[in-house]
Amino acid sequence: GASRALPEGGERPLGRTVAGTEVVAWRAADGTLVAGPGACPHLGAPLRESPVRCGTLICRWHGLPLDGAPSAGWRPYPAYDDGVLLWVRLDEAGGETPLERPVVPARPDPRTAVDAVYTAVGRCEPEDVVANRLDPWHGAWLHPYSFVDLRVLDAPDPSAEAPEDGFTVEVSFKVAGRAVVPVQAVFTAPEPRTVVMHITGGEGTGSVVETHATPLSPDPAGRPRTAVVEAVVAASDRPGFAAARLAAPLLRPL
């Protein structure tokens, strides 16, 4: 989720179920991100409903304090805050070799950029989200109200000994009526469940749109569910963009 969803000094943790695993996250007293199993090791109380006091999570059932260190069988998960998104590493999910830290794409300077994070839940597998995002024709055919004049400039050659990881498109985003914003963008997949779009030409050059597909628990009918986390980090050299940054709290999804 979004880094700002866990403000420093906050008194409530975040609780999520990722790949069938309950996870709870909160800020330590120094603002560091802490994450671990979402059930209390005592009697299984849901820790997402517990308060945080001075960086320590206090189980609401019997008061077991958790400060982020291993305690009574509870052990933290590796966690990382990149300033836009919160990451928690679950070594038993995904099947990939664990990394020391997530692969965070190059982003605009946060001092001059606007970022926003939006999460939606779909009834699908993470692979479906990635395939959808990497299909350059999806937007043109199924979302003509948003995208026009799509042209693929280059794509990886699968027969190459070391094919490049990415393809480049030109596309125009509809704004209102006939008004459009043409851009050039490069799509890459730095991780198995992540797709990144870098704006490399046109309006907003340097801006980034990240799509992260996180597996959740199945729905009551046993069908897979995936959280689609979209992180946008926008930049612009237009004079009015500084004013837009001041209005960022009004622009971000609620």
Score class of each variant (00 low, 15 high):
residue 12 R to H: 12
residue 20 G to F: 10
residue 251 L to G: 11
residue 246 L to N: 08
residue 16 R to D: 12
residue 149 D to W: 00
residue 86 L to G: 12
residue 194 T to V: 09
residue 68 G to A: 03
residue 88 V to L: 05
residue 159 S to Q: 08
residue 102 P to A: 02
residue 211 T to R: 00
residue 15 G to M: 03
residue 212 H to T: 12
residue 252 R to L: 01
residue 195 V to P: 01
residue 185 A to D: 13
residue 236 S to G: 11
residue 97 T to P: 11
residue 233 V to Y: 04
residue 7 P to N: 01
residue 54 C to P: 03
residue 21 T to Y: 03
residue 212 H to M: 12
residue 35 A to S: 12
residue 104 V to N: 06
residue 19 A to W: 11
residue 12 R to M: 10
residue 230 E to A: 05
residue 27 R to K: 15
residue 228 V to S: 01
residue 96 E to A: 10
residue 250 L to D: 08
residue 100 E to L: 02
residue 169 V to M: 13
residue 135 D to I: 15
residue 221 A to K: 07
residue 200 T to E: 04
residue 19 A to R: 08
residue 75 R to V: 15
residue 194 T to Q: 14
residue 16 R to H: 12
residue 8 E to F: 10
residue 144 P to M: 09
residue 108 P to G: 09
residue 124 C to S: 02
residue 146 S to Y: 13
residue 42 H to F: 11
residue 78 P to F: 07
residue 150 L to R: 15
residue 206 G to V: 15
residue 131 A to H: 05
residue 246 L to I: 05
residue 83 G to T: 15
residue 99 L to H: 10
residue 16 R to W: 15
residue 116 A to S: 10
residue 139 G to D: 06
residue 127 E to R: 11
residue 10 G to D: 06
residue 86 L to E: 08
residue 60 R to H: 15
residue 50 S to E: 10
residue 230 E to Y: 14
residue 106 A to Q: 13
residue 198 H to N: 07
residue 73 G to L: 14
residue 234 A to M: 11
residue 81 D to G: 04
residue 123 R to H: 06
residue 167 F to L: 01
residue 186 V to A: 13
residue 139 G to N: 08
residue 76 P to H: 06
residue 159 S to Y: 09
residue 233 V to E: 10
residue 205 T to P: 03
residue 225 R to S: 02
residue 17 T to W: 00
residue 254 L to W: 10
residue 55 G to N: 10
residue 94 G to S: 02
residue 82 D to N: 11
residue 212 H to E: 15
residue 15 G to Q: 05
residue 22 E to P: 07
residue 160 A to Q: 00
residue 76 P to G: 12
residue 158 P to T: 04
residue 134 L to V: 08
residue 61 W to P: 01
residue 204 G to P: 09
residue 26 W to F: 12
residue 76 P to C: 06
residue 110 P to E: 05
residue 82 D to R: 12
residue 35 A to N: 13
residue 165 D to P: 00
residue 13 P to H: 00
residue 40 C to W: 02
residue 108 P to I: 09
residue 173 F to M: 13
residue 136 P to V: 05
residue 154 D to K: 07
residue 10 G to L: 01
residue 240 G to K: 03
residue 115 D to S: 12
residue 47 L to P: 14
residue 12 R to D: 06
residue 89 R to E: 07
residue 20 G to Q: 03
residue 190 P to N: 02
residue 245 R to L: 15
residue 80 Y to S: 03
residue 229 V to T: 14
residue 116 A to W: 05
residue 85 L to M: 11
residue 40 C to V: 09
residue 31 G to M: 01
residue 133 R to Y: 03
residue 109 D to R: 07
residue 96 E to V: 13
residue 231 A to Y: 04
residue 143 H to Y: 15
residue 123 R to Q: 10
residue 17 T to F: 00
